[in-house]
């Protein structure tokens, strides 16, 4: 396990466990990941509670479907996927911090094969993103089941709940990778964070709502497909969970590929 022997230069392109462990240590050796994890939990708690206890007044078309329907239950459990923006942020910080604090220099000095560093960074963020996803699912589902104990509701289909749970963990994991890829492209920390948040919270959400035919192909639309949650958009025609997962992976790969032929080839000055 320990890499204390003088390893000869290897030509294989596979991921380097030591590099992944190094990238993971980078993440957990500062406090940012804890703050963002708390953010995930608060965001998910608010979302699930709001879905469960939203007042039902006014026009039915403007209401969330009630918990007495299957789609209402999907919305309740799917609420745990509403904090993926925090996974984007941890991913984007994972690379833009290196540019901001100029640790990218010592990173590339220690590991000059830049593409291997990026692969390792993305794998480490898959782990952290998945951790956020697990926290969101465990915390959010606990609140959801507590809410169901005091509300009238349709019978719970545990296969659907499990599918939503797994899909959400996958979505958080892939969003963290997407954050790394976009951060590598943009490099400037503030620009990357503002851009990602504005995109995910406003632009993409609006596109998914107003132009669902386009929206379902966006990363956010893929996440909705993975969860199969309708929200306010009850006529949505999202991709099925499996193609939606593949679409999300494809987005991450595309950004990573663009980043690897631009930023990673640049001089580090």
């Amino acid at each position: 396990m320990s890499a204390d022997t003088l390893t000869p230069a290897s030509t294989s392109a596979g991921p380097r466990p030591a590099l992944v462990r190094a990238e993971f240590l980078k993440i957990v050796s500062t406090k940012m990941w804890i703050g963002l994890l708390v953010g995930v939990l608060i965001f998910v708690a608010i979302q699930v509670l709001a879905t469960a206890f939203a007042p039902r007044t006014g026009d039915a078309a403007n209401q969330l479907p009630p918990l007495t329907t299957d789609i209402g239950l999907r919305n309740l459990f799917g609420g745990v996927g509403q904090a993926t923006v925090f996974a984007l942020i941890i991913g984007a910080l994972g690379i833009t911090q290196e540019f901001r604090h100029q640790t990218i220099t010592s990173t590339f000095l220690a590991a000059p094969h830049r593409s291997r560093v990026m692969v390792a960074k993305m794998l480490a963020h898959v782990l952290v993103g998945a951790l956020y996803g697990v926290a969101a699912v465990v915390g959010g589902f606990a609140i959801a089941f507590a809410a169901l104990a005091v509300k009238d509701h349709a019978p719970v289909d545990y296969t659907v709940v499990a599918q939503i749970g797994l899909g959400v963990v996958l979505a958080y994991a892939l969003y963290a990778v997407l954050g790394v890829a976009v951060g590598t492209l943009v490099r400037n920390q503030i620009a990357a964070l503002v851009g990602l948040i504005v995109w995910a919270v406003f632009v993409e959400a609006l596109l998914i709502l107003l132009l669902p035919k386009v929206g379902k192909w966006l990363p956010g639309g893929a996440v909705e497909g993975i969860k199969q949650v309708a929200g306010f958009n009850q006529n949505a025609d999202y991709l099925a969970p499996l193609p939606a997962s593949l679409l999300l992976i494809a987005w991450a790969v595309v950004f990573a590929a663009i980043a690897s032929v631009t930023t990673l080839r640049r001089d580090v000055t």
Binding site: S2, A3, D4, L19, R21, A22, L25, S106, A111, V117
Partner: peptide
Amino acid sequence: NHLRVLARMGGVDER
């Protein structure tokens, strides 16, 4: 931790 990160990346014993 700064040095441990670099040691891991450079394939050097963390000690």
